[in-house]
Design a protein around this nucleic acid. Sequence first.
DNA 1: CCTATATCGTA
DNA 2: GTACGATATAGGA
Length: 983
Amino acid sequence: MTDDSSTAKPIGPGDHVFLVDGSSYIFRAYHALPPLTRKSDGLPVGAVSGFCNMLWKLLREGLTPEKGDEPTHFAVIFDASGKSFRNDIYDQYKAHRPEPPEDLRPQFGLIRQAVHAFNVACVEMLGFEADDLIATYAKRAREAGAKVTIIASDKDLMQLVGGDVDMFDTMKNKRIGPDEVVEKFGVPPEKVVDVQALAGDSVDNIPGVPGIGVKTAAQLIEEFGDVETLLQNAETIKQKKRRENLIEFAEQARISRKLVELDQNVPVEEGLDDFAVTAVDGAKLVAFLKALEFSTLTRRVAEATEVEGAEVEATEIVVKGWESAAEAAPGEDGAASAPSGGLSTGGKSDFTPKALSEERIDRIASLKTDTSAYEVVREEAALQSWVDDATEQGFVAVDTETTSLDPMVADLVGVSLALAPGRACYVPLQHKAGNGDLLGGGLVEGQIPVQKALEILKPMLEDPAILKIAQNMKYDWLVLARHGATTVSYDDTMLISYALDAGKGGHGMDELSKRWLGHEPIPYKEVAGSGKNAVTFDMVEIERAAAYAAEDADVTLRLWMLLKPRLVAERGTTVYETLERPLVPVLARMERRGVAVDRQMLSRLSGDFAQGMAALEAEIHELAGETFNIASPKQLGEILFDKMSLAGGKKTKTGAWGTGAGVLEELAAQGHDLPQRVLDWRQLSKLKSTYTDALPGYINAETNRVHTSYSLASTTTGRLSSSEPNLQNIPVRTEEGRKIRCAFVAEKGMKLVSADYSQIELRVLAHMAEIPQLTKAFEDGLDIHAMTASEMFGVPIEGMEPSVRRRAKAINFGIIYGISAFGLAAQLGIPRGEAKDYIDKYFERFPGIRDYMEETKKFARANGYVETVFGRRAHYPEINTKNPNMRAFQERAAINAPIQGSAADIIRRAMLRMEEALRHSDLGAEMLLQVHDELIFEVPEGEVDKTIPVITEIMEKAALPAVQLKVPLQVDARAADNWNEAH
DNA sequence: CCTATATCGTA
DNA sequence: GTACGATATAGGA
């Protein structure tokens, strides 16, 4: 490509040979790229795509975009299937290699075809692994005085580095020279085989010597020079166990050395001269790339080779070896989509994402749960080796074990990792000696010090090239963040499940495991006890802890393998990637910041409420003529309806008297004193027990602030929920209640800013149902409830009676909730018939709303789910149930979900953009809380005026650019010293 | 000790 | 009429 030298001259100094390790590239690309990148007819091409991009880049630019580094000779080397000479030495060599995944298999052939399309030499030889061929060619090139770059990252090739031979990892864009080899193995390249022989390798099933990892091996080789010398002097080793192992497993070490040492003298057929780079045949390459639908690369190649892309006809491609894959699991609806671009997919095969994902579900679910291979990692070298394997593989399931369910106080007890189904480990870090009672012992022996372990884990957690897979990552993210590591690049099986199956059940690990893997993980209770026998995880014996923890990581990995392809197959990727996953660190940071509460103010309020309650209690008992537990609905019902025989009592479904607020209010309206006193008492009791008494208990001893926990996956609609404590239900409606809000305060020198969406759900409804009057009203900034009343009852907005507006407001809320005459009647305290008249009247004025509601129900009945404007799905599997009451309930929920859910999506989008926007404007504001349509910030006093417009703008434009709402969003924001005044 | 029910706080 | 979580009581284990 560099020039058009057609006559090959013998290779020599000044030449630069590129040897690409094709086989290992395929596996890495497969795992590094999204699981289901495929052509329009379903042919999986993710790995091929990555490979073609790499080839093109290397041929054009060499290793760096600067000129002068281009290859003169280029070859891609593959493993040929079949056994190699290493199996003769050791029959277990690479014995544990799993079969390649189904959706990777067809890509092996395609990659070889790609090499030919690039006019590049393609080498493989039966009985020899790619690494040996690379070793042989590298040696020959070196001897001829040429430079060699091996395009690979495989540590087995590192023994070849040195002099004019180096390696280059294209995925990390990193050169591997002698220094990098030393970094990895602790010894220079020529000693790498000795270290590998001692340390062994679980992936290739190289046995090595037990108890010796890379670090120890490097020390020993440093000291003795090579394996043979070491083995002959093994008696001189001081450490008993190590000495014994070296003696006992000496032969195994010798075999291992033979296995890892590459053969540099393979009798290859093609010479280096055959690898001379020739000009790319633009038309041929474009035709191939076009057939695979790599549009960007096709265009680039067409431009660079001056080929008119549109005029080139796509190559006919036949893919071997996937008829068998298709037969193993035929697609549900049989017929594959029609082949396009001249690609034959083998006739009957169905390679749609749907079919492949279903196949994957079957495959993962049918794997047996083998927990026997779980490992307890007690040494740094062993942990490093797991981390290395994770780095190599590009993904790893991670789970932390801690002392608390609250991530803000949890201390790290251990970490588990899983690399493949059944291949998991537990790393105990801070298990304590369980002397049962007091004092407890110190740390149990045989654990890596936490700081050391974190030093090893941190680079992996912070490496964007390694995907960390967790179940409920927010928890682990926070724990790890508090221990100094910021996790990037992650997947969360809980959130994948939520994006796919909201409404179909919970998303906890045990539940998902049962549902998808048919496997019931060890219950936490069985490991750590429950009730008064419960102990923190650090008191659990290590072997028991390991069985539990490693299983969690294993199950998480399996769930990921099973669920992740469903995202593509079921169109969940966008929701997962834009609304769920990125919110994890945003919420984690909000939780970590917490909010300040005034402990004294709460304590004083508790006292006030207690006084009020005591006074009311005396009056109530006086009126009742006896003392009873006012907090007991059962006792209260008996007093009111049995003893006092008040009218209007209704039994609940359990046969007890109903004593809800509605009932008591009705009795109060009849002129009875006792029910009103009970209502007042209940209000104070609620405020005291739920808020003023409970909140101080949530103040974190270290931060002096309250840290709620947001759940991303517990509502059907997409809303967040808040717990421990729930800060989304802090009182606001009554005077007494608002006093509690006053206790939520800003730090000294700061203000609280509250910004809330005005009528966001009605606006979303106006958009989705396309209601002209509503849209107009919102555009004109009208009072929407007054406008509704005006439309319905024909009265002017000016001078409208408050009761009229109140009725319209109730109807508007009713509409959002899927309205029923029964519900509206209850809300307004009017007869059912009257409520029905209102509803009819409303639909007469806004027929579009009725249409929208009917359409939504129809859609839900047909599909079992409904969607928000951003594509989030809420499932209602029971919507076609026979029971009319239950069905009506499902229908109302299904009507409400797109409205509530779209609003939830909008505020999520705002939150996702908020931190960056504030930082970009150089503002110190921090987001503290979310209450469905409201965000609360803590803002430096002097920055309030600059901050409010930034917050408001982000929130008002949050739907853009994904959705252009037909209705403007309006945000009101205020600053004050406490939440009550800011709201 | 654990779970279900009733009640009530929020959007 | 939608969506949640916390609390206290009560009843079965």
